[in-house]
Structures are given as C-alpha cells and as structure tokens.
Design a protein around this nucleic acid. Structure first.
Lengths: 182, 182
DNA sequence: ATAAGTGTGTTGATTTTTCAACAGTTTAAG
DNA sequence: CTTAAACTGTTGAAAAATCAACACACTTAT
C-alpha cells in the first residue's frame, strides 16, 4: 500500500479516536477530524464515505490488531500464551478498547469482534463439521468469551492478565475439547 | 505553504536530528533519514540537495525558532523579558540546541546564530550609523552573548534562567546604552 | 420568516509524493 | 585485486493529497 495512504489513514483514525474520547460521536464533525489529523477535508472523503463508515473502518482495524496479537504462532488450538498476548495488548491499549466497547462504539465493535471470533472458531473446526450442535457451541463460546473481555475492560481491569487468562482457560476447557473432537 | 510540504519537511528534520543524536553526522545516511521520516528517499532530494544542505536548513529553522521566541513584542530594546523567553525556550529544547552547538552542528549553527544576532543589533542601530566603533561593538556584544549561551548549554545549564538573565542584562547594560546613542 | 453561520458531500485543476529503474561512487570483505 | 553490497543522486510516469468552489441541508437567533 502506498506510504501516503497509510500515513493519512493512521492520522485520521488517531484524530477520530481522540475526538471520540473528548466529545462523543455525535459532536465530532468531519471538519474537526480533518483539522486534528492535519489533512484536507476532501482527503477524509477520499477514504471514508462518512462518519459511520470511518467508525466502521476504525473498528475493523482495531479488531484486526487485537486478533493479530494472538495469532503469531501457527498453533490453532486455544492456548494460554495466545490469550495472554491478547489480554496484554488489551491492557496496553485500554483507553481505545474501553471507548470502542462503550456506547461510543455504537455496537459496531462488539458485532465485528463477535463475527471475527465466531469465524475463527469455525475455521478451527474445519469445513466438514457443520452440525447444529457445533454451531450452538460456537455462539455460546464466542458470547461467553466476549462477555468476559467486556466485563474486564468495562470494570477497568479488576484483576491482572495472568489471573484472567487462567480463568478463561478453565472456562473454555470443556468446550475446546468438545470442538476438537467434532 | 502546502500542508504536505510542511509535514514532510518537519518529519525529515525530526528524523535527521534524532539520527544525529544517535549516530553522529558522518554515519547518518539519506536512506536512514528517509526510512525514519517515513518518506520516500526521492522526497528527501526533492527538498534538500544533500546532507549538508539538510543540516544547513535545520540550523536555519532552529535559529529562527530561537530568535522568534524573543521577538513577540515590538519592543526593539534589549529587555529582560525577551531574554527570559529565549532562555526558557532554550531550556525546554536543551537536547536539540546542545547537539547543534556541539561539533555535530559542524559550525553551521554558531555561524548562523552569530550572523542573525549581529544583524539584529545592526537593525536596532538603524541604517545611518555605520561607524567603525559601532561595528566593533556589535561584534564584541554578539560574540559575548553567544559565548554565554554556549557556556550555559554546554555545561548543562548550571544556573537557572532567572539568574543567567540577570547576569546577561548586567553585562550588556553599558553596551546597549552605547549603541542606542549612536 | 429569514438571514447568518456551520456542516456535508462532490468536483476538477494543480501540486506533491511515490515508486521503480538507472548509472555512478564508496565501502567492506574474501 | 575484485566482487558484492550499500549509498548517492536523477529521471519520468503514476498515484495521492491539496485547494477552492459549488450546491445543499441544518441549526439558531433576530
């Protein structure tokens, strides 16, 4: 990707997230964003259709970053190290994810994170196993997982990464087994 | 000036100063600078002829910033507040000016600062008074002034702004009088 | 009601940056 | 010495960002 595009998109997203924190979605204008990002207003429209599209792309980016931080290893099984990396990343970028999980995210974030995690679980299962029981398990596990993340972030990380990782592993253990053996 | 130009030049200069601090002038390559500034190598050559030109332009910029920080008021007489602002700016940007005053500046900085200060002193005198005695006084005062700045920065600011301002005012007092009355 | 002000989204001409390719020079190592 | 690798500086075509201008919708205060 062209270096200019990357730089422009990064500064627009950064500006948008900052303004979201300061004023809230409704009060942020495209003018604000362009000014803060030190970019022409037209340039914003060159990349994003409108404010909602920008929020959507931001969410996509941050979900991607979160997921990538536990996908370094080629290990597809749900292992503690992957969780730990993800939670540490979450901890280090607390402000942003707290914002996106709140109503400021307008539901976009939760929806996309849910879809992404469900897809990963399906991929782990492989294409053959499309039984109803597995579908239900996937949605149950995805919801439970996100619910715990949400609780942890929304309550300002009331316990440390190590502890929440262990609790998650414990909770997921029976289901990972059930998923592995189709 | 086009917004892109400003952004590009700023990031190139920032990258250059940082690399100068880390590696020294000789070891910094144009590739380094472009990479650090997140800019195409060709773009560097679009703005600067070579490394020396870049250093020169940097020096010009930083001398300008230093001078501007005591030129807010329309008061052309040498007043304590102007000195104080300048010294405070110097204090807040210690690392950069320490670097530029050292051999890393390759003499460019001292030369240009000298020329700038001498010119200001001449302007204060006006165009009519071009007597030899005034010329000599100007060079004496400019040298003395820069010498004190250099000492202060090179020794890591061994006294506070207030004190050095007072000492400077005291030292300059007889000469400002001599200059004012042609 | 209307006028002034602010935000939205689009357009086209212009400028800047990028990229890849090139030839020439310097540096370092076998 | 010579070969490989890295750095320098330049070029031209292509892509992106800028700017000014436009029409339109919306608030809000006189």
């Amino acid at each position: 990707m062209d270096r200019r595009i990357k730089k422009t998109q990064q500064s627009i997203m950064k500006a948008f997230i900052d303004l979201l924190t300061e004023k809230g979605f409704d009060k942020v204008t495209i003018n604000d964003i362009a000014e803060r990002a030190n970019v022409n207003r037209g340039t914003v429209y060159l990349h994003y259709a409108d404010k909602f599209d920008l929020l959507d792309k931001c969410v996509e980016t941050y979900v991607g970053l979160l997921i990538n931080h536990c996908a370094d290893t080629s290990d597809t099984t749900l292992n503690p190290n992957a969780f730990k990396r993800m939670l540490e990343y979450l901890e280090n970028n607390f402000a942003i994810y707290h914002l996106l999980l709140s109503n400021e995210g307008v539901g976009f974030f939760r929806k996309r994170l849910y879809a992404t995690i469900a897809k990963i679980l399906m991929d782990v299962l492989g294409t053959e196993n499309k039984q109803l029981s597995n579908s239900i398990t996937i949605h149950f596990v995805a919801s439970g997982f996100i619910g715990v993340l949400d609780w942890w972030i929304s309550n300002s990380m009331p316990c440390d990464v190590q502890e929440i990782t262990e609790r998650l592993m414990f909770l997921l253990e029976p289901y990972t087994k059930r998923l592995d053996s189709n």
